[in-house]
């Protein structure tokens, strides 16, 4: 048993150059033939932040308590956007991975388990680029990071893991029911507005607050907002809860994969 696990681990390890090469290719392929390349990945969330800031900042700034900066709203918005972008991009990656890599899966024998690792790798690089871009904006606005940023690597990993595990489960189903890849973006759009990213929970009447407790993504964005804007520790219990959900979805994805792997390639 242990020997077999070791043999599999050694087999996977022999593919480490493939993983590196695939992550690099993945990043390059997305912006191939565009001059600004990776920058485009950052433009979209930043443009959204700019638009909302211009339209909503006067309305909102007065309503964000416990903050000491006049730029509280844009910073609030960006922290939430960072969490959301990481999460939703990871969902998208997981969702598309099997169908997009269909040709490869059909033609080349390699450890399939490396595909999520490649997706995680390239999403991490994108996430780091987005984070550094936002950091520059924060510095520009005079909002310096403090020690609470030590939470950031963990939070970013959590956002990516949660998104990827959910995405993978639906990505597997999508191989058999292609409607899923159409439905998920719509659902994500609703989820975006049901999550306090553009608005703050405190702006809503208290009787509605309980409706948000079911939304795990609200806990994720809150954690980012805590660290970046409020400079305080996120609620540990919420992080445990989010990890639990990510773990359950990972287990479900793995379980479904084992069940369908013998016919997966037949449907690609």
């Amino acid at each position: 048993m242990i020997q077999r696990a070791l043999a599999i681990a050694r087999y996977w390890w022999s593919y480490r150059f493939f993983v590196r090469s695939a992550i690099r290719n993945d990043l390059r392929a997305r912006y191939a033939r565009s001059k600004l390349g990776l920058l485009w990945a950052l433009v979209q969330p930043l443009a959204m932040v700019l638009i909302y800031t211009l339209i909503l900042s006067h309305l909102m700034s007065a309503k964000l308590p416990e903050t000491d900066t006049v730029y509280a709203y844009p910073i609030y918005l960006m922290s939430g956007m960072l969490a959301w972008t990481l999460f939703s991009e990871a969902v998208g990656r997981g969702l598309g991975i099997f169908v997009e890599q269909g040709e490869l899966i059909k033609k080349v024998a390699f450890p399939r388990a490396l595909l999520p690792i490649i997706a995680l790798g390239s999403a991490t690089v994108n996430g780091l680029a987005l984070l550094s871009m936002m950091l520059m904006v924060f510095l520009f606005l005079g909002h310096w990071p403090d020690l609470h940023y030590l939470w950031m690597p963990g939070l970013m990993f959590l956002a990516l893991w949660l998104g990827l595990s959910i995405g993978l489960l639906f990505g597997l189903m999508n191989v058999f029911f292609r409607d899923i890849s159409q439905a998920i973006p719509v659902i994500l759009q609703f989820l975006f507005w049901l999550t306090p990213i553009v608005y703050a929970l405190s702006m809503l009447p208290p009787e509605y607050h309980s409706y948000f407790s079911w939304n795990p993504i609200a806990k994720l964005t809150a954690a980012f907002q805590d660290v970046i804007l409020y400079r305080r520790n996120p609620t540990e219990l919420h992080l445990v809860y989010l990890s639990g959900i990510a773990f359950i979805f990972t287990a479900l994805s793995a379980g479904l994969y084992l069940r369908v792997k013998h016919e997966l390639a037949d449907h690609l």
Binding site: F17, F18, A22, E103
Partner: peptide, 26 residues
């Protein structure tokens, strides 16, 4: 025909990636 090559990359880049797909080191 083909090993899932990417049309946007050069022959050399695709070849290198193709070799990695066989479990080779850099």
């Amino acid at each position: 025909l083909g090993m899932g090559f990417n049309g946007e990359f050069t022959g050399r880049e695709n070849a290198r990636h193709g070799l990695s797909m066989m479990g080779m080191s850099a």
